[in-house]
Amino acid sequence: MTELLKIENLNKSFGALEVLKGIDLTVEKGETVVILGSSGSGKSTLLRCVNFMEIPTSGRIAIAGKPVGTERSRASGRIQVDYRESELIGIRATVGMVFQHFNLFPHMTAFGNVMEGPRTVLKLPRGECEARAETYLSKVGLADKMHSYPAHLSGGQQQRVAIARALAMEPQLMLFDEATSALDPELVGEVLQTIRSLADEGMTMLIVTHELGFAYSVASKVLFLSDGVILEQGAPDDVLVRPKQQRTRDFLRGHATYKLPDLAIT
């Protein structure tokens, strides 16, 4: 197995507020890692640091064996790194991200949305961009909605277009930031199904979600984040069924309405 993502002693503060406190994480190629935690635990921030939507305060991130940025110093365990914007733009182009609120471009059709990245960022020839748009829209099951504008699509369809938009960049890593939290309950399934099929194809993914049942069935590894540290990590059975930490148990009990198979909460 090859190491696709390596995070080393990652810290992130917003002003005086420390959101991430020394995160270490390794993700192998083809792994599906689900990140759990209550709101404010830092799980979204962790995800957003991976593609540098947020610049880490300190710590090192390496993608596909290549450390990002230039290391300036390692004082008292804190790794200070300098980044160039052009390098970060390159990273973002190879890491896909799917947002809670879809953030589709409303002035473009589904087809236009998916074409936009290959066209503007990768500067591929028009024909190839169109081919990609067709391929990935079909992949998420929306070949018949290609020429619809986002306003005419359901929430679930919009989110699938957003997934196709990220896939069209042919990323090595996909990030899902609460991709189903803004959806009506009856639309959650189709999006989860799309994510699951990506997992089956061997896409490397980091998923922040509240859908515990989905996490259990799709994850190769589950992380439980609390107050900016990884409190517990391991196979779904270990973290979700036999959690060691009291705080993990409290969290799982709070989400007990989500049906989990033989969930042993005591």
């Binding site: 914007e85 973002r92 182009a93």
Partner: peptide, 16 residues
């Protein structure tokens, strides 16, 4: 803000 974020996430710079 989500529109800026989505553009940024697919690798666009500020001008794009």
């Amino acid at each position: 803000k989500g529109q800026w974020e989505a553009a940024k996430a697919i690798g666009m710079d500020r001008g794009q």
